[in-house]
Design a protein around this nucleic acid. Structure first.
Lengths: 343, 343
DNA sequence: CTGAAAGCGCTAACAC
DNA sequence: GTGTTAGCGCTTTCAG
């Protein structure tokens, strides 16, 4: 039952012509190679009738280009990344590319393996949120002229194209806002991480606090991509912050867990103001709605993919890299209303 | 700078042996082919030193297997699908497979194109939420012995492996629950769709209503994957349902939009009970929290991927197909408290 | 204008 | 035990 896939040779035989000619026609080089219109018509007709499609695999082997983009992100199930996945996919498809994704969990070993696998598949370009420690591999890719676009975070010392947001001013503004609303003991809750985006968020918070002569208090959780461990950690740590009158979460993953925990902890937390980096639909629906630093997801995706497509198009890699830094937007909601004054 | 990729021939030359031997060692056929341990050691050492990795591309061309699974879903940015994407990815990776995803938007033409592209890339198996009208293509794939696992919905007349949930009883139970709580004018809000999962949800609702001698009222929206159009449609339609005392949303996408709209519409909607198919984290956080029919995401993913891996492993496709129907769970929350009796 | 042929890197039947 | 060799299906240089 398995009808053999029809190949370019079959066409050549059936039509009694050379496969070279067919290949030229297939690749739109008909007039460049000055092939007769009759021939072109005949071949096209045959292709149409038989439903012949060239094997992308064989083509890739020959040309060294796979028309596949590797998308390496922390976790595809995270809405931030899956939203970007969708936007990137659409644009890639328009340009004839497909996407292979892989979740890294910010694990260097895993990421290294993924890159190796993708290189074996001749992936044409890499869009990646790199974990720390992967600098060498990234540099190597770039050194070999393979297009790489890094986003979400910055890799100090690695020259490549970047699309990031201004994390520092994101938390800086959020913190300033909290202080302006009358809060003094603002606690910053984050993952223990050396990733630049996390460090910048922390710096933004700390700077803002110091400028206002307030003492920064940072709570660090172990990174974990599922909710339960985060909630447990928060349940342990938050009650210890007896003076806290406001909390700023470094990511929406932590923040959403934090909301639940604060709700469970009950009355002591009633008047704690809440803000979070990374907007989330939950923040909209929570009562009170939660103030958040929103990342411009579409802008990020558009910049990432257009940078990538551009690099893919030009055959010779230019040595100048672009860094795109996008602004965040502080969405002020009910959770950071001006502090009630107690006597 | 571009150091040429080292190939199996290079090794053969360097070591003055045949590439066959290397290939055998590479593919773990060393003892089967009774290759001397010395040889094996020498080759492994060389491979290790040079960091040689076989080209997956060339291998695929030769073997006809790409070790890639195609994942065709409605929309990767939808949490339901991206969660499954993650679970499937992990299991696929363990078995040496990678995933290429593509969003279909339930569009037949688009899906057809995607399948064609993937076939040209020799994708080994397809995991797919098929749009209506794609039956022929699916049947063709199966006819050629290519593993296909369909999930989320059922394709009448197509014999293949399925992983679906019991949509009918999901809405049936939710509706019954609403009626038991004292609601009479339960309105069902859905997308206009002939997809089986949507029809089953509607049937479950209608049946439950009829059994209780109540009149089913179904509101159909045009399918759309972004929120704004859905909210606009709801803003137009919901106020017309003057008798409505409860609403059951057919998907969480509609439901989440519905919550916002109901909130905006304000006081008239105050006492309307709300339930939704597809649980969503927002439902947890909304005040009141929203009753939902939860799909067992992990179960779905596990069944899908293990079905796929099994089919991929056995060389000859057996003709018997499995259908896995999973139960949903009704999460009863505050939005469906017993109806207050007015005089 | 069209064709012959080399080769991308690998696998596996067949030889020795 | 190990080597020879014929492809997998396509692109592209070089001839004519």
């Amino acid at each position: 039952m398995k009808k053999k896939r029809i190949s370019i040779v079959d066409i050549a035989n059936s039509l009694q012509i050379s496969k070279t000619t067919i290949s030229f026609i297939l690749n739109g080089k008909a007039k460049e190679k000055r092939i007769s219109d009759d021939m072109v018509a005949k071949v096209n007709q045959f292709i149409h009738e038989t439903g012949y499609k060239p094997s992308a695999l064989a083509r890739s082997l020959r040309t060294g280009r796979s028309k596949i983009i590797g998308f390496l992100i922390e976790d595809i199930s995270h809405p931030f990344f899956s939203s970007i996945a969708r936007l990137i996919e659409d644009e890639a498809t328009k340009n004839g590319y497909k996407i292979i994704y892989a979740s890294t969990d910010n694990d260097v070993l895993k990421t290294r393996e993924i890159i190796t696998m993708m290189r074996n598949r001749q992936v044409d370009g890499y869009i990646i949120t790199p974990p720390l420690g992967i600098e060498a591999e990234i540099t190597e890719l770039i050194g070999e002229g393979i297009p790489v676009v890094v986003f979400d975070r910055y890799l100090p010392g690695v020259k490549t194209d970047y699309v990031i947001v201004d994390n520092f001013h994101g938390t800086y503004n959020a913190t300033t806002h909290l202080v302006d609303q009358g809060y003094r003991d603002v606690v910053f809750v984050t993952f223990r991480s050396l990733q630049m985006q996390m460090r910048d968020r922390e710096s933004g918070y700390s700077e803002a606090m110091k400028e206002r002569k307030l003492k920064p208090v940072v709570l660090e959780l172990e990174y974990n991509h599922s909710r339960l461990p985060i909630m447990e950690a928060l349940t342990d740590l938050l009650p210890l912050q007896t003076d806290m009158d406001a909390v700023l979460f470094a990511t929406n993953r932590i923040g959403v867990c934090g909301l639940k925990v604060i709700e469970h902890l009950g009355k002591n937390m009633k008047d704690v103001a809440i803000a979070s980096f990374d907007d989330d639909i939950v923040y909209n629906f929570h009562k009170p709605s939660v103030t958040a630093v929103a990342q411009p997801i579409e802008d990020i995706a558009n910049n990432v993919i257009s940078l990538m497509i551009n690099k893919l198009k030009k055959r010779h890699q230019s040595a100048d890299f672009q860094t795109v830094i996008l602004d965040t937007a502080l969405k002020i909601r009910d959770s950071t209303r001006a502090k009630k004054q107690h006597n």
